[in-house]
Design a binder for these strands. Structure first.
Lengths: 188, 188
DNA sequence: CCATAGGTAAACAGATCAGTTTACATTGTC
DNA sequence: GACAATGTAAACTGATCTGTTTACCTATGG
């Protein structure tokens, strides 16, 4: 009846694979590991996803939706002022890291692992990067900046650098440092 | 006689592994691939490096030295002014990308792949991140900035974000965007 | 000329990988 | 109760992985 009430088997598989790949990496995590203690048999998995790469792409699409739901939507809801919304993106990103541990951006991790190997997966990394910049550019436009395209890209670089560095150094305060830099760029 | 004249077999192995891991990733690249068309037998390889992880650590140490020789040394040589040196780091990084193709930071790539799996390798990623920030902080101190520690970290985030984004989007001009942002942060 | 050191080449072991197949259990429907 | 759909469980294939071992080659030095 309801069509989003109970999770589809397909969604269940994606959710399990999501965690497994996030924690273990893509190449390093086998299909067997994805299924371990998850109540999903290999036959069912391959029914929905003909190959590991297909599964990875589905996971990355889910990740994109999650990023909207967990990062952009809550951050933009915190204020109506685009400058404050930009700052909120750094804050929410920090909170996500503090809640869900060390992990960086899954799509870019995938992009790095599959660059030159699997076009579809690598494209997800590129698109995630472009999408993030686009959101910042959009906010810079709303803020009425002189050069929203450049400033938006710059803030995007800060954000991506912060996500990577925070993960490497296991230090969520990195996002605060980045937010202050974004404030300076917005003030010019 | 000379002790750096002819490359040691050990150095030869590292150089071959360096390229193989850079192009293929760590988990995805097998020992067999490292040796393919390289004139190095498996027996010799395992004589010098008892495990793949040992080899990876040696490669990362070499990568650190290369980064000094190919990035920091030439960039710092371009000027005596610390602000200009910071700008030069972005320029040289762009030139490196244009010369040697798409590749991002090997140490952080390794850190991402081995986080929670191999402490020694993961530590190289963390150290590379900290080292980079340290170099920028040092230059910010020389430039007489009010808060060199914070500004140095911020510029480090820009640099790391630019390296990742430039790789993802295959766009070397990303480093120019980052350099302009660094200029703004330095002018405050 | 021979011994030793250091190398290549390649077979091999055991684990694990992606993906297929066979067999069986469960469930809802007619 | 029969049937079809959907699932689990697990054996299996063939490739590939890390790492070991056996056998042979080649240079150098006494």
């Amino acid at each position: 009846m309801a069509d989003t009430a109970t999770p589809t088997k397909k969604q269940e598989i994606i959710a399990q694979a999501y965690d497994a790949f996030y924690n273990g990496g893509f190449h390093a995590t086998g299909i067997d590991t994805v299924m371990a203690n998850s109540g999903i048999s290999k036959r069912t998995l391959y029914k929905y996803f003909p190959s590991k790469e297909d599964l990875i792409e589905a996971v990355l699409e889910q990740y994109g939706e999650d990023t909207d739901a967990l990062l952009f939507t809550p951050a933009l809801a915190r204020s109506d002022d685009p400058r404050a919304q930009i700052a909120a993106l750094f804050d929410v990103r920090r909170e996500i890291m503090e809640k869900t541990a060390c992990r960086g951006c899954l799509a870019m991790k995938a992009g790095q692992e599959y660059i030159g190997k699997h076009a579809g997966i690598a494209a997800h990394g590129r698109e995630a990067s472009v999408y993030l910049e686009g959101r910042f550019i959009e906010l810079c436009e709303k803020a009425g900046l002189a050069n929203p395209r450049e400033t938006g890209r710059q803030i995007g670089l800060l954000f991506q650098g912060a996500a990577l560095t925070a993960q490497m150094q296991q230090d969520p305060s990195t996002f605060d440092v980045a937010r202050k830099a974004a404030d300076i760029l917005l003030a010019v």
